[in-house]
Simulated assay, not measured.
Amino acid sequence: MAHTVRIWDLPTRLFHWSLAASVIGLVVTAKMGGNAMVWHFRLGYAVMALLLFRIVWGLVGGRWSRFSAFFYSPARLLRYLRGHGHADDSVGHSPLGALSVFALLALLGAQVGTGLLSDDEIAFAGPLTRFVSGEVVGQATGYHKDVGQYLLLALVALHVVAILYYVFARRQKLVAPMVGGDKQLPAPSPASRDDTLSRLGAAVVLGLSSGVAWWVSGLGAF
Rank of each mutant, 00 (worst) to 15 (best):
A21R: 00
S192L: 04
L219G: 13
S18H: 06
G109L: 03
V205I: 14
I55D: 07
K173G: 11
D120W: 01
S217R: 14
D119W: 08
A110M: 14
W64D: 02
W64A: 03
P127G: 13
A123G: 15
G220T: 06
L152Q: 03
K31T: 10
L78S: 14
V101M: 07
R42I: 09
H84L: 01
R193P: 07
P186M: 01
M32E: 10
P186G: 05
L116V: 13
G211Y: 09
F15C: 12
A169L: 15
L104N: 01
S209R: 03
G62R: 01
P190I: 01
F222H: 11
A191F: 04
L43H: 07
R6A: 05
M32D: 09
G218L: 07
W39F: 14
V56Y: 01
L128V: 13
V5N: 00
V38Q: 09
V205L: 10
V132T: 07
V204S: 04
F124N: 05
A98W: 05
Y166V: 06
V137L: 04
E135N: 13
L104P: 02
R130V: 14
K31C: 05
P74H: 13
R66E: 11
A213P: 10
R199Q: 12
L51K: 00
S65L: 09
H159M: 09
G115P: 05
G201K: 04
P177H: 03
L155A: 06
S73L: 14
L19Y: 01
V91A: 10
A140K: 00
K183A: 09
L158V: 13
Q149E: 10
L152T: 03
S210F: 12
L206V: 13
A187N: 03
A69Q: 04
L26P: 00
A202E: 06
V205R: 00
Y150R: 10
F71A: 15
M178K: 03
G83K: 00
W57S: 04
A75Q: 07
Q111G: 10
V101C: 08
L116A: 12
S192P: 07
